[in-house]
Design a protein around this nucleic acid. Structure first.
Length: 681
DNA sequence: AGCACGCCGACT
DNA sequence: GTCGGCGTGCTC
């Protein structure tokens, strides 16, 4: 027992159960000094080993499992009022437990950074950046909703003050946002608050502007670009009730609200609602739970709902509201599949697509080319000896970039100059394989010398303000060609676009991941949604080497929902989500053998638990190498668990994680648990 | 995760 | 002699 500074007598007035920031899956008990008022949901400073940390009280108890003489007292109370309301704290704890993440670390990560240390939780004004600029709403003419929108608005408004989940399933341009706005308006009139979650990339100034124009109520924005102080202010404004509308990405779901009234998840199918590292929670799933806890309605909105949400709508867990009418005169775009096996293509562009591009430009339209690969080409190879540009740190190939010229890995930080001869055979015949956005951009610039060609990908928009500049040029309405990655699929309003070309639809068709087809379909519909929003009808050309593929045929001829139904049938037959539940235990290490060895141990621990608890209905697969086994010089393995029962997985995992945590082998690998994984990568 | 402790090799 | 590598244990 290490020597401790002798304590004065501490007439304890109860014991506080504290979540301490550490990777340990348990709470720690502390004595509450006399004359100290504490309650669950406040921060305290506590001694922890040889350190002092900021923890969160989650309960007050009068008996500890630890002998009282072993308990140490709370050093300092940081909040005098409840910081995290009890129903919200329950959600935080539930989430840490469900996603099998160490409770102290989970709760710590949900606090805004400004509250993780000692500082007091108070709003301080910032001269350089007032969090509430004075704007009076100018948008006085509120559009009149159509009958479908009215029905949606009425359904949500009728359930204010009680829990209800709505799947707002509306085609692009059907006016989902107007439904959100009117439901928020109704909530504001009851002196309640609304929180809206949006995907990472779509929290644009335009989105925010639309809300500021519409409402005079204070709006708190929570996005990644804020300084810690701005973020803290927004958080505290929501918690205190000063802010009436909270708009933010994933983590905004955990923001306290003084008078909660409504939760909205926009683009609910979007992958960014699932955190992909550390505490791997799903903000979309937790939103429904929060709404239930707080007895308020929740709206999940999308033009391409996730199979999970469609399933929940089918089974009656969500109320399914469909918006099928497009606003104004806009009509649905027409789809056409282009067989790339039959057409010579230059830089991945088929002659059909080039001809269509010329036609639309001539008619004054804008053209959008979607290609989900940035850079010039995905590989450099030697035509003499077959050498390819492998990444030294990953099981991947280095991508060729021309602007500026370099080779780089899209999975790690590796960056190399472009060799002028083959490193293996010294030959001079180096060629590129495949097409990226840069190559597509330059090929189109050559083919259409009189038309501006704009590229929209992570590289082109790296510089701040560059995205806005490109969008502004598009919005001037002049004919142009826009080449881009995923970035262009999401949200941006591009009224001048009349033709959309999709270069590589095959990628999603043959993805190793079980959600590959779902993601592909959502992507194609989202991209197609960019076309024909204005008066001219849109045209969508999808290039594929498998035009006869059943999924593509169904999507193109019968639409997203028809494909969703067949994909759901396939999932049911395979007992995959949403008909079964998955958990992945991941392990990675610098040595090749360690992760597999570790997960073999994990599997033994699992088997003995299954045996001792007499669990059935659990499948265990692996250890298996991850789809890209080596990444950034680390070897990665997976252990996959599957069951038709969440609670069975839960009662298996809790003791398994506890046991693994205590094993010394756990220190020699990086391991994590992913409950309801989005993909196997 | 941190951090302390303790046990071995190697170097001023 | 002692500086420092990392394996092991502990945190209410």
């Amino acid at each position: 027992m290490p020597a401790r500074t002798p304590q004065q007598s501490h007439p304890a007035s109860g014991i506080a159960r504290v979540a301490v920031p550490s990777p340990l899956r348990r709470l720690f008990d502390y004595l509450i000094p006399a004359n100290t008022h504490v309650q669950p949901g406040i921060r305290v400073r506590v001694p922890f080993g040889s350190r002092e940390l900021t923890g969160i009280i989650v309960a007050i108890v009068d008996q500890s499992d630890i002998e009282t003489s072993q308990l140490r007292p709370i050093t300092e109370v940081l909040d005098h009022d409840e910081l995290i309301p009890s129903h919200l704290l329950d959600l935080w704890l539930w989430a840490a437990n469900y996603y099998q993440h160490p409770v102290g670390d989970a709760l710590h990560s949900l606090l805004p950074a400004g509250l993780r240390k000692k500082s007091a939780a108070s709003i301080r004004s910032h001269h350089s950046d007032p969090s509430q600029p004075e704007i009076t709403p100018t948008d006085t003419d509120i559009p009149t909703p159509n009958s479908q929108q009215n029905e949606a608005i009425r359904a949500v408004n009728d359930s204010s003050g009680q829990f209800n989940s709505f799947l707002l399933d509306g085609v692009t341009g059907s006016g989902k946002t107007e439904v959100y706005l009117q439901c928020i308006d109704h909530i504001l009139k009851q002196d309640k608050q609304a929180v809206m979650l949006v995907p990472e990339i779509s929290l644009t100034p335009q989105t925010i502007e639309r809300f500021r124009q519409r409402f005079s109520a204070a709006i708190a924005i929570l996005h990644s670009g804020l300084t810690p102080r701005q973020r803290l202010n927004a958080w505290l404004e929501a918690a205190s009730g000063v802010a009436r509308i909270i708009i933010g990405t994933r983590s905004a779901l955990f923001t306290p609200m003084a008078q909660p009234g409504l939760i909205i998840i926009d683009e609910e199918h979007d992958a960014s609602f699932k955190q992909q590292d550390g505490f791997r929670y799903s903000a979309r799933d937790l939103a429904v739970l929060r709404a239930r806890h707080e007895s308020i309605p929740v709206i999940l909105g999308s033009a391409t709902p996730s199979l999970e949400s469609l399933y929940n709508a089918n089974t009656g867990r969500y109320r399914h509201i469909q918006l099928t009418q497009r606003a104004g005169t806009a009509s649905m775009p027409t789809f056409q599949l282009v067989d790339t096996r039959r057409q010579l293509s230059e830089a991945g562009l088929s002659s059909d697509l080039l001809l269509a591009t010329a036609r639309h430009l001539k008619q004054g339209g804008q053209v959008l080319i979607f290609i989900n690969r940035r850079g010039f080409a995905p590989v450099l190879h030697c035509e003499d000896c077959g050498w390819t540009s492998e990444c030294p740190s990953c099981d991947a190939r280095l991508t060729v970039h021309r602007k500026p010229p370099h080779l780089c890995c899209h999975h790690c930080e590796t960056r190399q100059p472009v060799p002028d001869h083959c490193p293996d055979c010294q030959g001079k015949s180096l060629g590129t394989g495949g097409t990226g956005t840069e190559q597509c951009e330059s090929a189109l610039a050559t083919a259409f010398p009189d038309t501006p060609v704009l590229r929209l990908d992570r590289d082109a928009t790296r510089r701040k303000g560059e995205l806005e500049r490109i969008l502004k040029q598009i919005n001037n309405g002049e004919p142009c060609i826009l080449v881009g990655t995923q970035m262009i699929a999401k949200g941006h309003h591009l009224p001048g676009v009349t033709l959309v070309g999709v270069l590589d639809a095959d990628n999603g068709l043959f993805s190793a991941d079980f959600r590959g087809q779902e993601f592909m379909a959502q992507m194609l519909i989202q991209v197609a949604g960019r076309a024909g929003r204005a008066s001219q009808p849109g045209e969508v050309l999808i290039q594929t080497s498998n035009p006869e593929h059943q999924s593509l045929q169904t999507l193109v001829h019968d639409g997203y929902h028809a494909l969703a139904r067949t994909l759901l049938n396939e999932r049911e037959a395979a007992a995959m989500p949403p008909y079964g539940y998955l958990v992945i235990i991941r392990a990675e290490a610098v040595s090749m053998a360690a992760p597999q060895r570790y997960l073999t141990l994990a599997r033994q621990v699992i088997n003995s638990q299954i045996h001792s608890q007499q669990l059935n209905d659990i499948e265990v697969h692996g250890p298996l190498p991850a789809p890209m086994e080596r990444r950034a010089n680390r070897y990665r393995q997976h252990l996959i668990l599957k069951s038709s029962s969440r609670s069975v997985l839960q009662s298996l995992l809790t003791p398994v994680c506890q046991i693994l945590e205590g094993r010394s082998e756990s220190r020699r690998v990086r391991w994590s648990v992913d409950v309801d994984p989005l993909d196997m990568l």
